[in-house]
Structure formats: structure tokens, C-alpha cells
Design a protein around this nucleic acid. Sequence first.
DNA 1: TATTGTTATACTCTATAACTATA
DNA 2: TATAGTTATAGAGTATAACAATA
Lengths: 159, 159
Amino acid sequence: MHEMAEAAERLRVVVRLLSRRAQVDTAEEGPTRSEQAVLAWLDERGSMTLTALASAENIRLQSMGQTVDALERHGCVERSAHPTDRRQLLISITKDGRRMLQKGRDLRQARIVEAMETLLTAKERRTLVSSLELLERIVSWEGSRRQNRQARRVLEGPQ
Amino acid sequence: MHEMAEAAERLRVVVRLLSRRAQVDTAEEGPTRSEQAVLAWLDERGSMTLTALASAENIRLQSMGQTVDALERHGCVERSAHPTDRRQLLISITKDGRRMLQKGRDLRQARIVEAMETLLTAKERRTLVSSLELLERIVSWEGSRRQNRQARRVLEGPQ
DNA sequence: TATTGTTATACTCTATAACTATA
DNA sequence: TATAGTTATAGAGTATAACAATA
């Protein structure tokens, strides 16, 4: 029991540090992390509404609106009218957006791949890969007690 | 080669989601995540200067100043004069600070421990624990190409 | 001159509240 | 009345720049 509490603590810390590093590593260049996530969804899905994007990322509609606004200002996405429901707007990725997506992937992966290859043995790399599935399971778990105040996340998406 | 790029991508995504979950899970109650980290350092080390805290968390002195200011306003830490060097201020945790630290630990760990115990088998838990050491190694790696513009981090601390 | 710290300002990512337009 | 989206505002967690005090 104590053992899992300690593991949870270490996980929390390392996640916070990794998260900050991811933020710092791509400053100045390429899309921000949340922009990157949106571009990846649009690249995979073709086009999505704001509501769908917000639900996919498990954030509020209004928060997603700000990210999409920024992407639109940079010419990475476009809004277009929904064919039948005039309340909805379909958001799609542009050619420039795809370029940004690739640039973001390259920038973000470079350091972490180098770290994995430099620091870990082949066996350790396998352990790490195995644990990814476990972390993904944990992060998509909704908890047993209270429901989130928000709609279910759709976690099977890209980034 | 491709395999590690994919692993890096998955790691990046899961870290971002875990990080947001950690943010959301403790809203409204207890210390914020960065306050929590500072309280944990002070609890372990007794007292530290602002510079030492900033270096420990690998953030700028000015950023740490803001976190410490907030903690001081809430009565969780105190500043006191350094015995010999009048430029330095020693920051230490108060009794209220220790209470907050414990509260934060309880709040933050509850969900993740429950997830680990509910979702993972004993073997999977061992895999996860093994991978923590690997992630810690990766996050403390400085990279081979360019040096960070910042001082080295001291990573062996608590949270 | 180098080190420690403060103050001012800004950006990212998320939130809530109040609103409009359409179904 | 419910749903899709916008606008305004705020807080957490960083950052940089310019400064003052002390070593």
C-alpha cells in the first residue's frame, strides 16, 4: 500500500518535470503543445467542430476556442460552414498547418528520442514501452467515485 | 529508430494528459502543484534560499519568487535573514505549511493510487515502478547538443 | 564585478460567466 | 429549451528585463 503511494508520488513529480521540459524545449519554434494536439486531431479526422475538439482534448469549449483562434491567425486552420446545421463550424487543417504539425513533431521528438537512445539499454527501452500502455490506461481512467463534471473524453486520438 | 519515435510521441501525449489531470484533480483545495513542490523541498531540507529552490525546480529565480510569495501570504513559509550573508534570505516551512503539504499529498495521491490498484495487475505495477527510474533518468538528462541557458538542476529531491 | 533578490510585464493553457445565433 | 459558438475576464505557472543591495 505504501509502495503504491510512493510510486504515485514519483510519477507525479516526473510528469511535472517532463511536462515543463516539453514546454521549454519547443519555445520559440513550432506550434505550442495545445496547438500541436489540435493539428494532429484535424490531420487525422479531416475536419471537426469546436465541440468535438474540446471533447477530444477534455477541455472546455471556450478554451479550445482560444487555441483554434490562435491557429487560425497563423493560417494553420480554417473555419467553414456546416452543410446542414448553421450553428456548427467545421474546422480543418491547411497546408501550412500540416507543415507546422510536422515541424512540431520533429522538434518535440528530437530530444526525447535522443535521451532514450543515449540513456537506456535495449531492455530498459522495452520496459519503458511496456509502461506506456499502463500510463495510457491510468490517464484515461475516470475514477470510481465522482464523475467529472465534463463529457467523456475520446482518447483513441492522435497527437 | 521509428519505434523510439513512436514511443516518444506516446510519452509526450500521456505526459500532457497526466499533467492536466494533476492540475484539475486538486483545484479548489490544498496547495497548487508548484507550491506543493516547494513545501516538500523545505520540509526535507529545513530551509533553503530562493536561488537554491529555483535551481532545485529548474525554474528561474523570479518565477520561484512568485511561488514563495504566494506561500508566504498563506502563512505556509517564512523568510529569515541569513546569519552571515545579508544578500541571502532563508526560507523555511511553518506549521501551517506542513499541514498544507500533507493535505496536498493526500489529495494528489488518492486518485492515482486508486487507479494503479484498480487498473493494474501486480506484474504491471512492477513494470510501472521500474519505468519510473527510467523516466527520472530521462528528465534529468541535459541533452548532448546545446546546454540549457540555465544552471544544472539538483534532481535528487522530494516533492 | 558577481551574486541574491525584487518588481514589472507578458505569454501559455486552462477556467467561468454572460452573451448571441440557430435548432 | 437545448446546443454551438463568441467574448470577456481571471488564475496558475512559467518567462524576460531592469533594478537594488550586498559580497
